[in-house]
């Protein structure tokens, strides 16, 4: 379960509305490499993670992504606060305004609505962790492109923070992946589990009586 804390993870106070920048940034809300996809991916993959380290890592990074989702929504909301329909239209947001007014809807910069097809949950820890590391890199690239497009230092400051978290998450997923690969590389010992199940009378576990005769030549 989760408990809400009435604060953001990092302060956001945008003084200058910029609806065009909001149109770009919304991709990190509901776009292909956005925070909704990230949190949904990790919080769904956690159920098939095999070890303590991988369960904790998926659960807690997925949780942090929810805090980032709120931050990106806050950016979009504050960048469009008090903007007139004319300014919205001039910024290329007329289509968005038609369907959603001034609000925060999970879509990509190009207007595609959010879809779970952005993510995969494969049930194979190695496969999922490789996907997660790629996802963090894709999100880092997106934040860098957004920083290229932005000119307001208040916006850039928040984008830089979010970009940096992708780098840290990539690192942690890499460490979790290494523990899985080390485990898979361990020398394997196969045990006949019948030995530990005395109720299953296969006969092989019975103490040999000295004079059963079966050992006699």
């Amino acid at each position: 379960m989760w408990e809400y804390e009435k604060k953001l993870q990092y302060p956001i106070n945008i003084k200058k509305p910029d609806p065009q920048m909001a149109k770009f940034i919304i991709s990190q809300y509901g776009g292909p490499d956005g925070e909704l996809a990230a949190s949904l991916r990790y919080l769904s993959q956690k159920f098939s993670m095999p070890t303590e380290i991988t369960k904790a890592t998926l659960n807690d990074i997925g949780t942090e992504e929810l805090a980032h989702l709120e931050m990106v929504g806050t950016l979009v909301s504050q960048l469009t606060k008090g903007v007139s329909p004319e300014e919205i239209k001039a910024a290329g947001l007329g289509d968005y305004y038609t369907d959603h007014g001034i609000s925060v809807y999970p879509q990509s910069a190009a207007g595609n609505p959010f879809t779970a097809a952005y993510i995969q949950v494969k049930g194979d820890p190695r496969t999922d962790l490789y996907e997660d590391m790629a996802a963090e890199q894709k999100a880092r690239s997106t934040y860098e492109y957004l920083i290229d497009l932005a000119d307001d230092p208040d916006v850039i400051d928040v984008l830089k923070y979010l970009r940096q978290r992708e780098v840290v998450h990539f690192q942690r997923f890499g460490e979790a992946l290494r523990t899985v690969e080390e485990k898979l590389a361990d020398k394997k010992f196969y045990m006949n589990n019948m030995i530990n199940q005395p109720n299953k009378d296969c006969g092989c576990n019975k103490p040999k009586t000295k004079d059963c005769g079966c050992n006699k030549q």
């Binding site: 604060k7 993870q9 990092y10 380290i53 904790a56 890592t57 990074i61 942090e64 840290v168 979790a176």
Partner: peptide, 20 residues
């Protein structure tokens, strides 16, 4: 609030570190 955010940030970053 900024000080709380900074403390919570350090805590969460350490939490992820301690997981691995």
């Amino acid at each position: 609030m900024k000080d709380i955010m900074a403390h919570d940030f350090k805590l969460y970053d350490l939490q992820l570190y301690l997981n691995t």
